[in-house]
């Protein structure tokens, strides 16, 4: 059984990453922006695992672990920030967050 070529996975990963970039740049809801960042991290994970399979080395899969841990930490802190901003501004639209000392 011939597996799917690695290039296809890399292309799919690039597409998903680009969609995440578009989400970060065009959406105004802070939570959607965070979810787009998660999408980009996930696309990078897909490329890592694809190359780990290509070279039959496990190191790529280990790096996926670290990316997941960093993503979890980032989500915890980022959502705490969003909750705090919502308390003071009563909004999570990033266009409303335009003062240094709200």
């Amino acid at each position: 059984m011939q597996p799917v070529p690695t290039l296809y996975y890399v292309a799919l990963s690039a597409l998903l990453f680009t969609l995440g970039v578009i989400g970060v740049l065009t959406r105004r809801n802070a939570i959607i922006i965070f979810m787009s960042v998660e999408l980009m991290l996930n696309a990078a994970n897909l490329a890592f695992v694809a190359f780990a399979r290509e070279f039959a080395k496990l190191d790529g899969q280990i790096f996926v672990f670290f990316v997941m841990a960093v993503a979890a930490a980032e989500v915890a802190v980022g959502l705490a920030l969003i909750v705090t901003i919502f308390r003071t501004k009563n909004s999570i639209n990033v266009d409303d967050i335009n003062q240094l000392k709200g």
């Binding site: 597996p3 799917v4 996975y9 799919l12 998660e38 996930n42 994970n45 897909l46 695992v49 694809a50 780990a52 399979r53 899969q61 996926v64 672990f65 997941m68 993503a71 979890a72 989500v75």
Partner: peptide
């Protein structure tokens, strides 16, 4: 996709940590 790429453990972590917890 992770399962197809011979990464079953990563796939399970993906479901539990990403799709589950996060």
């Amino acid at each position: 996709f992770f399962i197809m790429l011979a990464a079953p453990f990563i796939a399970m972590v993906q479901v539990t940590v990403y799709a589950g917890a996060i």
